[in-house]
Amino acid sequence: MILCFDIGGSAIKGAFARSVETIVPLDRRPTPLHDFAAFVQTLRDVIDEAGERPDRLALSITGVVDPETRAIKCANIPCIDGRNLFEALSTSLGLPVLIANDADCFALAEAGAGAGRGHRIVLGAILGTGVGGGLVVDGRLVNAEGGFAGEWGHGPALAAMAGTPPVAVPTFDCGCGQRGCVDTIGGARGMERLHAVLHGHLLASEQITLLWQRGDAQAARTIDVFIDLISAPLALTVNITGATIVPVGGGLSNVAPLIAALDTAVRARILRRFDRPLVVPGACRIEPGLIGAAILGLSGETI
C-alpha cells in the first residue's frame, strides 16, 4: 500500500492506494505554510489516519524540484521552499518519499488513467489560474528527476500582434522573472488582463467565457485574441515533443467550447495532421493530483 498526497497552498489531500482503481481519500487538512515541523506533523497525522504503515509516500506538490540539488522551489508554501524535501521527509517520517510537480502528476494521471491512455507521448496542459504542463513518455515522467520539461507556460513566447484583425498586445511581467510569458495571458487571470487591455474594463474569466458563448462581441474578441496568442506556443510544444494527445486541466478546461477552439487552432499550426481532436479536456475530473501521485507511488521507483 502507498500513501499519496496532493499538496497545495491551501490544503493537503491524502489517500491510500493499492492500485490506480482503489484510491481511498482521507480527510483534507489545511496546509501549514510557515512551520515545517507542523507541515511534517500534518503528513504524519494522515499516515496515522490510514491505519496501516505504507510502503512509501508519493507527493503531488505545487513547486518544482531542481534536478541537480533536489531542492524544491515553492513560493506558495514558504516552509518547504529551498529544502531537499526528499531527504527531510524520509528522515522525519522514516519512509521512502517520491515527489512530483502537480502539473506533472496531472499529466501522469491522464497518461495512466485518463485521456492519454494508449498514447506513447502525452503532454498535460494546465489552463487554470496560470499555465503549466507536464510530459509523459512511455508511461514515465520526463521530469522523473525534477525539472521543467513540459512547462510551455514560461519563456517570452507571446506574439506582439494577435487576433483577426490583428491587434497589438502588450507584454507583461511574469512571476518567473521573465516578461511576455504565455502564463501572463494564457490562464484565467491572463484572460481577464487581456479583456481589460482590449476593452478597458475588468471581467472575471467565468463571465468572459459565458458572454462569449452567448454571442457577446467584446467577449468574442477577447477569446479570438486569447486563442491566437496561446495556440502558437502550444503548437510549437507539440511539434517539439511529438505528443499525440494534449489533455487539459485547470478551471478553463471546464469550458468545452474554449478547449475545442484551442484544439482547432493548434491542429492548424502543427506539422503532423490529425483527423481527431488533439487538445482535449482531461478525463480525470476528480483529484487528478492524487491519481498521478498514486501512479508515481505504485511504480515503486525511487527518484
Rank of each mutant, 00 (worst) to 15 (best):
M1E: 04
M1P: 01
F5V: 01
G9Y: 11
R18N: 13
T22A: 15
P25E: 00
D27F: 02
D27M: 04
L33R: 15
D35I: 12
A38T: 07
T42R: 12
L43N: 14
D45S: 13
I47W: 02
E49N: 10
A50L: 05
A50V: 08
E52Y: 10
V65E: 01
E68P: 02
R70S: 13
A71K: 15
K73H: 13
N76Y: 12
P78F: 03
G82N: 01
G82E: 00
R83V: 02
R83Y: 03
N84W: 06
F86S: 06
L89Q: 09
L89K: 05
S90Y: 06
L98V: 15
A100L: 13
N101D: 03
D102Q: 07
A103N: 02
A107S: 04
L108F: 05
E110D: 05
G112L: 13
G116Y: 01
R117P: 05
G118E: 01
H119M: 02
V122P: 03
V122W: 00
V122A: 02
L123D: 08
T129Y: 07
G130P: 09
G132E: 00
V136K: 03
G139E: 01
L141D: 02
N143L: 02
N143R: 04
A144R: 09
E145S: 14
H154W: 14
G155R: 07
A160T: 05
A162N: 08
A162V: 06
T164E: 12
V169Q: 13
V169L: 12
T171E: 15
T171I: 05
D173V: 10
D173F: 05
D173Q: 09
C174W: 09
C174N: 04
R179D: 05
G187T: 00
R189S: 15
L194E: 07
L194D: 05
H195A: 05
H199E: 14
G200K: 09
H201S: 14
L202P: 12
L210H: 13
R214L: 15
A217S: 13
A220M: 14
R221W: 15
T222M: 09
D224R: 08
I230E: 06
I230Q: 07
A232D: 14
A235Q: 00
V238N: 12
G242C: 03
T244F: 08
T244M: 09
I245V: 15
P247C: 09
A256T: 07
A260W: 08
V266E: 02
L278F: 11
V279I: 14
V280C: 00
P281K: 03
A283C: 02
R285G: 08
R285E: 03
I286T: 12
P288F: 10
I291F: 12
L298G: 03
G300R: 12
E301Y: 06
E301V: 15
T302Y: 06
I303T: 14
